Amino acid sequence: MKKLLFICSVFLMMMSCKSQGKRPLMGKTVYQQELNASYKDASKSPLKKKDLRNFNGLEFFTVDSTFIVNAKFTKTENAPTFKMATTTDRKPLYKEYGLLDFTLNGKNCKLTIYQSQDDLRDEKYKDYLFLPFTDDTSGNESYGGGRYMDVMTTDIKPDNTVVLNFNNTYNPYCAYNDKYSCPLTPRKNHLDLEIKAGIKAFKKH
């Protein structure tokens, strides 16, 4: 009996040490932690091998509730399908899904939200909408090609409003690795103010 208790106590000590030695998830919010976990995972990370080896988490602006806004959604009727420019010769098919009007830091802002026609054929992504934007931090504190935000069709409320959380933005994969082909942010989706929220520019090693 004493031998069994000893073995059990040693096992519990080993488990305790193992759990204490486990590194906590990187990030201030659940969104940041999940994004960091994804980029740390070599099987799905866009990072180059040398950047992955030195990866200690993505850089974000300080979380700021000022950059969580209610936007008025207006559906774009009979929008034509068009080929969206990318960083390569690839031209994926998109449609303008609607317009988002909101006020941020006292400024009236407008962004066009898009729907990938390829995603419509994929049950997993058919409800995803694509919101790319640039702002006055682009090319300095944030990635020059702009940042992205995912919005779901189900996020649009019956009163045609949708919450936009600029703290939950991400960079296109091209910001980390030029082997990827990424949609270019349309010029009309530039915000004439600084969005100091969400993901920052990535410092490559």
Rank of each mutant, 00 (worst) to 15 (best):
Met1Gly: 14
Met1Val: 14
Lys2Tyr: 15
Lys2Phe: 14
Lys3Val: 14
Leu4Glu: 15
Leu4Pro: 13
Leu5Ile: 12
Phe6Asp: 14
Cys8Val: 14
Ser9Arg: 06
Phe11Gln: 13
Phe11Pro: 12
Leu12Glu: 06
Met14Phe: 14
Ser16Leu: 12
Lys18Arg: 15
Lys18Cys: 14
Gln20Tyr: 11
Gly21Glu: 09
Gly21Asp: 10
Leu25Tyr: 08
Gly27Arg: 01
Thr29Asn: 03
Leu35Ala: 05
Asn36Cys: 04
Ser38Tyr: 11
Tyr39Gly: 06
Tyr39Asp: 05
Asp41Trp: 04
Ala42Thr: 09
Lys50Met: 13
Leu52Glu: 09
Leu52Thr: 09
Arg53Met: 15
Phe55Ala: 01
Glu59Met: 13
Phe60Pro: 01
Phe61Pro: 03
Phe61Gly: 03
Thr62Ser: 12
Val63Leu: 07
Asp64Met: 05
Thr66Gly: 13
Ile68Phe: 01
Ile68Thr: 04
Val69Ala: 04
Asn70Asp: 09
Lys72Asn: 10
Lys72Ile: 11
Lys72Asp: 10
Phe73Trp: 06
Phe73Glu: 04
Thr74Asp: 10
Lys75His: 10
Lys75Pro: 10
Thr76Ser: 09
Glu77Ile: 13
Lys83Pro: 06
Thr86Phe: 02
Thr87Asp: 01
Asp89Gly: 08
Lys91Gly: 07
Leu93Asn: 14
Leu93Pro: 11
Leu93Val: 14
Glu96Ile: 08
Gly98Met: 00
Leu100Asp: 00
Leu100Lys: 00
Asp101Trp: 10
Phe102Ala: 01
Phe102Thr: 00
Thr103Val: 11
Lys107Met: 09
Asn108Phe: 15
Asn108Tyr: 10
Cys109Thr: 03
Cys109Glu: 07
Lys110Ile: 07
Leu111Gln: 02
Leu111Phe: 02
Thr112Met: 09
Ile113Asp: 00
Ile113Lys: 02
Tyr114Asp: 06
Tyr114Cys: 07
Gln115Met: 08
Gln115Val: 12
Asp119Lys: 10
Leu120Val: 07
Arg121Ala: 15
Glu123Arg: 10
Lys126Thr: 11
Tyr128Thr: 09
Phe130Glu: 05
Pro132Asp: 01
Phe133Tyr: 07
Thr134Ala: 07
Asp135Ala: 04
Ser138Thr: 00
Ser138Leu: 02
Gly139Ala: 04
Asn140Trp: 15
Tyr143Leu: 00
Tyr143Ile: 00
Tyr143Gly: 00
Gly144Ala: 03
Gly145Met: 05
Gly145Ala: 05
Gly145Cys: 08
Tyr148Phe: 12
Tyr148Glu: 12
Tyr148Ile: 12
Thr154His: 10
Ile156Cys: 08
Lys157Pro: 11
Pro158His: 10
Thr161Val: 02
Leu164Trp: 00
Leu164Val: 04
Leu164Ile: 04
Phe166Ala: 01
Phe166Asp: 00
Asn167Met: 01
Pro172Cys: 02
Cys174Ile: 03
Cys174Asn: 05
Cys174Leu: 04
Tyr176His: 03
Lys179Ile: 15
Lys179Asn: 14
Pro183Phe: 03
Leu184Pro: 05
Pro186Thr: 02
Arg187Ala: 13
Arg187Phe: 15
Asn189Glu: 01
His190Met: 07
His190Glu: 09
Asp192Cys: 11
Ile195Pro: 03
Lys200Met: 04
Ala201Trp: 09
Ala201Cys: 12
Phe202Ala: 06
Lys204Ala: 12
